[in-house]
Design a protein around this nucleic acid. Structure first.
Lengths: 205, 205
DNA sequence: GTCTATATTAAGATAGAC
DNA sequence: GTCTATCTTAATATAGAC
């Protein structure tokens, strides 16, 4: 049987599925799709490989399930940016929420990063569809704010990219920053928060 | 025979070795270490798999060769930052040189990104050794400039991270930016250059 | 130095008992 | 639903002829 069935799930099924997804997130975010094995995932989930394949037909199927969960969550903070709110507040809040995402969901960020770095073969329709549409829409909003002189004028797309780059870096390159700083990542995020707050204050002014 | 030999290389050997490294860069930067196969590399290099393994003993050996070339190049622009130069010029030049690296060597950037995202298992000694030392040293220089009021005060380590994040993003996430912008990456880099110039002017002021 | 052939292991997936 | 056993393919690496 496959998870696409309409029947309600038993408690055990739900438990197993979420154990699998949790394990798969752990494994895929570290090793990428091709670098991960069903053995690793089954072991991390505490079940046997055939049992894992009872819940998901294939390795691909697990990966797709993870990514679609992720992509939904990915759009939220940007979608939430309110065109009628205070321009600077809205952008600063977006920065804060994106940094919080890196802090609280670093594995999801790295799963996404793995996909993009490797050329986004499995999510290109998302990127040039839903994501592009949302970014274009919000870029127009930001551009409108710039027209009114509420924030400084820049290319709005690149301003959005800069927020992504600066916040996701702390999750995606955590191995690097933590080795260089010699601190645990919690302290790094505290400093990052202060730093990003300060530079975006200046950028937007 | 192995490349560690002291004998001078023939022209054919040099040709083959550089063909292998070029092919391996192409393949590893897209698929990561585990996701890449010797078949792919041999095919891209235009030689047979056993012949490839005549020049490099193992898949690991090719990867190590690529990474050590890369890590050297990685340190240059930062090392070049002159403590006695003009503070703002030195930092702006660092930004420019890093963006040029992304533009001219995107595959190298993605090879590096693949390594870091996946937890830097093969380059952690580099990160906490040579790289950390250099970054700490340059952070002190930058901090000195801030003390003198030559540029605005921020956490110097995070300022360096921000330069990395903002410039490398264009190479590492090129699949994303080009799909969203619907432009070829050359035009994106032109705009990125203008954008980064503008925001760092404001940040440092 | 380069090739064909092959040994060896690992990985995705399935069969079938319970 | 879960397991053991197993099929099948693909991938790293080597042997040995030329």
């Amino acid at each position: 049987m496959q998870r696409s069935s309409e029947k309600p799930l038993t408690r055990i099924q739900k438990q197993n599925i979420s154990a699998i997804l949790e394990a798969a997130l752990e494994v895929f975010s570290v090793n990428g799709f091709r670098g991960s094995t069903l053995d690793q995932i089954a072991c991390a989930a505490g079940i046997s490989k055939p049992n894992l394949l009872y819940y998901f037909n294939s390795k691909q199927a697990i990966h797709v399930a993870l990514l679609s969960e992720l992509l939904d969550a990915w759009l939220y903070p940007l979608r939430d940016m309110n065109p009628n709110g205070d321009a600077k507040d809205e952008l600063m809040n977006y920065v804060r929420r994106k940094l919080d995402l890196s802090r609280n969901f670093p594995r999801e960020s790295r799963l996404f990063a793995n996909e993009i770095v490797q050329g986004a073969p499995r999510i290109d329709t998302f990127l040039k569809g839903d994501l592009k549409n949302l970014v274009d829409e919000k870029a127009k909003v930001i551009s409108g704010w710039m027209d009114k002189g509420l924030i400084a004028r820049f290319d709005p797309h690149h301003l959005i990219f800069s927020i992504w780059a600066l916040t996701q870096h702390y999750a995606d390159f955590e191995a690097q920053t933590s080795l260089i700083m010699g601190k645990d990542s919690d302290k790094i995020y505290d400093d990052a928060s202060i730093f990003l707050e300060a530079i975006f204050e200046k950028i937007l002014a």
